[in-house]
Write a protein that binds this DNA or RNA. Structure first.
Length: 103
DNA sequence: GGATTGACATCCC
DNA sequence: CGGGATGCCAATC
């Protein structure tokens, strides 16, 4: 019944359309807690192990993939490029073009 | 039930 | 301009 913050975040993440990206802070805000960006990160860790989420569509506020190379950066870049997103300099995405902007 | 965690965001120097 | 410090919030351990 009552949805935890996590449940809401998961829903929001699932709504991100293919070919678009969103920032951690944006997800948090859409879920009702604008400052819980860090919590979103934790949710990705735990929930992505329980179900499949488009975790790769979430990036930081600078429009960059937040992962380090040894943490799976290349994997994420590949997933994004498959969706038609152009990733510059290994990890930079143009938010002006690709940021999801929900109604 | 308190401490820790986290792929952030922002301000500060 | 760049790195460091700080705030933040809720789930997980």
């Amino acid at each position: 019944m009552s949805e935890s913050f996590t449940d809401i975040v998961v829903k929001v993440i699932k709504k991100i359309p293919k070919g678009k990206v969103a920032t951690y802070g944006q997800i948090a805000a859409l879920s009702g807690s604008p400052r819980a960006a860090r919590q979103v990160v934790r949710i990705l860790h735990t929930q992505s192990k329980k179900e499949k989420l488009p975790w790769h569509r979430i990036i930081n506020s600078k429009g960059e993939i937040a992962l380090r190379e040894f943490e799976g950066l290349e994997e994420q870049r590949e997933l994004l490029e498959k969706e038609g997103i152009v990733v510059k300099n290994k990890n930079a995405i143009d938010l002006k073009i690709y940021q999801w902007h929900p109604k």
